[in-house]
Amino acid sequence: MTAGLKTVIYPVKDIAKAKALFTALLGVEPYVDEPYYVGFKDAGQDVGLDPSGHSKGLTGPVPYWHVDDIEKTLSALLAAGAETLQEVQDVGGGRRIASVRDAEGNQVGLIQDGAA
C-alpha cells in the first residue's frame, strides 16, 4: 500500500544555483540545507536536491512513492520485472529508501518513514 507520491529528488551539479532556483520557485527556505542534500517542503510535497545524484546514475528527477513496507513493495516490483538501482538504505531518522528501473527505463523510488 502506498501513501502516494510525495517526494521528488533532483540530481544537481551546482547545489547553490539549484537551491536558489527552488527557493525562488517555492517561496520557502529549505528545511534541510547540507552540502550533501537540500530539501524543501511545500504544499505537502518534499523536493530534494542531490549533488551526488548524477554519480548515482540519476539522469533526471526521480519520484518517490511513500510505502508501508519497503521490502514487500521492492520485492513485488522486482517480480514484475523491475531492476534494482538502489537496495534498501537507511538515510537517517528511520527513513529508508530504495529505487528501481522499470522495463521502459524509468526510475521509481520508494520511501518508508520510520515509526512515529
Rank of each mutant, 00 (worst) to 15 (best):
K19L: 01
G93R: 07
A80F: 05
A24L: 08
H66R: 13
Y64Q: 13
E34T: 08
D68H: 12
V47L: 14
V91P: 06
E83V: 06
T84C: 00
V100F: 00
A18T: 04
E104D: 15
A103Q: 13
A43P: 08
T84A: 02
L25R: 06
R101G: 02
E71P: 00
L58G: 06
L74G: 03
A20D: 10
I70K: 01
R96M: 09
A76Y: 14
T73K: 15
V62R: 03
G60I: 09
A82L: 06
D102K: 13
G81N: 05
A24V: 08
K41I: 08
L78A: 03
Y64P: 14
V62Y: 02
K17I: 03
A103M: 09
A76I: 09
N106G: 11
D90S: 11
D68G: 05
Q89D: 04
D90F: 09
K72D: 14
D68V: 15
R95H: 13
K56H: 15
F40M: 02
A98T: 02
E29T: 09
H66S: 12
P61A: 15
G93K: 10
A98V: 00
E34I: 03
T73N: 13
P63D: 07
K41G: 05
D42S: 13
G27K: 01
L58V: 09
A80K: 12
Y37N: 05
G48N: 06
D50Y: 10
G39A: 14
S99M: 10
D90N: 01
G39Q: 15
Y36Q: 11
E29M: 02
Q45A: 15
S55D: 14
K41M: 15
A79Q: 06
G44Y: 01
V47F: 07
S55L: 12
G53P: 09
S55H: 05
G92Y: 14
K19F: 00
L85F: 04
K19R: 12
L25P: 10
G48F: 10
V32I: 15
D90M: 09
R101P: 01
E87M: 14
V28E: 03
Q86E: 11
G39V: 10
Y36I: 04
V100T: 03
A20G: 15
S99L: 04
V38R: 00
K17C: 09
R96L: 09
V62Q: 05
A24R: 00
P35F: 01
T73E: 15
Q86H: 14
D102F: 06
H54V: 10
E87Y: 05
V32M: 07
L26P: 04
E83K: 08
L85Y: 02
V47P: 12
A79D: 08
K41C: 10
V32Q: 08
V28R: 01
L25Y: 06
Q89C: 09
K41V: 11
V91A: 00
L78T: 01
W65S: 10
G105W: 05
G94V: 07
P35N: 00
G39K: 12
D68I: 00
A80S: 12
